[in-house]
Amino acid sequence: MALEVKIRVKNSLGIHTRPATAIVKLLHQTKSDVTFTHKRDTINAKSILSILMLALHKNDQIIIKVAGIDAPEVMEKLQKGFESCFGEN
C-alpha cells in the first residue's frame, strides 16, 4: 500500500536535530519505505542526516510518501508527530 500526504512544518525552529531524532526513532521498527519530498529533493526519512540536510523551516511544505504493509499506521504516527511538533513548542 502506498500513501501520500502533504503537511506543513509547525515547529518554530524547523526540523532540527531533536525532531529529526524523534522522526527516525519513530520509523525504526516500521516495515514501510518512507520518503520526504521538499521542493526538488526526495530523501529517505529513516536517515537523520538526510532529514537534517533538507533544512526544513517553519511553514515549509513537504510531501510524505509511505509504501509498505504498515503504511496506514506509519502515516498516522507521522501526521500526529508533525501536528504535535514532535513534542516541541
Partner: peptide, 16 residues
Amino acid sequence: VAVLEAHLQIIQDPLL
C-alpha cells in the same frame, strides 16, 4: 543525553 540520542541515530544512519 539528547545530544547523544541524536548521535546514536547518526551512527546508524542508512545513508552513511
